[in-house]
Design a protein around this nucleic acid. Structure first.
Lengths: 136, 136
DNA sequence: GGATACTTTAAAATCATTCTAAATAGATTG
DNA sequence: CAATCTATTTAGAATGATTTTAAAGTATCC
């Protein structure tokens, strides 16, 4: 099954309409490796590949994918929203100089104790961010 | 020693000039309880107290306090920078509906294992964010 | 194929934040 | 304490990321 077919299946399953733009972006994102993208960075990549697409479309698409559960939102430093194709619970190194995120292999972290949640709340997600900077 | 005197001592020690605005903001922030503020929220509070101060001044002041080590920056959801008067290493609950942060008592969390850092990097800080939402 | 509802798009609008340049006010020195 | 120097405040303009708008385009269903 080609990548394109995979993406189409994925979008269908998620109940999203099959548009050229979504299929194109889906192909870029849902390959073998997990990726971190911002709307801006993804748009740049698309333009470099010679495709024309409105930046607003990229924003729309990322938000739709997120709502459909195909992407995870990650907090980043430089007030840029980062989307992560790795949906499972995991943690990040954040390079504070560049804003670059790197996955931390899940097996390398364990949180031994957790506090009890406030009354009437449930956990949506949990993320450990280790901010790193070049050694001085 | 009055609060005002405390603030003045604090600013002096930090090598910051003593301006009316900084002393006023210092008095608001460095009381008994730890606080989380954004420039916007702090500015609102100041206006409600009947003081006039440019929003840019609040931004400047928060950044200066941060550079001087009097405040910690915290990543938040709604692309709003939050400053925290609690300087020591600690974690947060984040209410995803309201953006409200609550400190997690340090003794309630322990991170058992940590991954090794990328080559040539050192840790700047580390934060666990537990995103919570009202129970459905 | 045609009606309908959802998408894409370019451009304008918005929101948090930063910058600019002029006016003001601490700090320092004589 | 006055003169000077330099940092800070301020209003308003500028920026940068994101969202909205309204019109044109396109997927889906019958």
């Amino acid at each position: 099954m080609s990548d394109k077919q995979n993406t189409i299946e994925m979008l269908k399953k998620a109940g999203l309409r099959l548009t050229k733009q979504r299929i194109f972006i889906g192909d870029l994102l849902f390959g073998s490796k997990h990726k971190h993208v911002s709307a801006e960075s993804l748009h740049n990549r698309i333009e470099k590949l010679g495709k024309k697409m409105a930046l607003a479309t990229v924003y729309n698409c990322l938000h739709h994918f997120h709502k459909a559960g195909l992407l995870k939102k990650v907090n980043a430093v430089n007030d840029v929203i980062i989307f992560d194709t790795n949906l499972c619970y995991h943690h990040h190194f954040l390079n504070v100089e560049t804003g670059e995120l790197t996955d931390i292999d899940e097996s390398n972290v364990s949180i031994a104790e957790l506090p009890s949640l406030p009354e009437g709340f449930e956990t949506e997600s949990m993320e450990l961010t280790i901010r790193v900077k070049p050694q001085t």
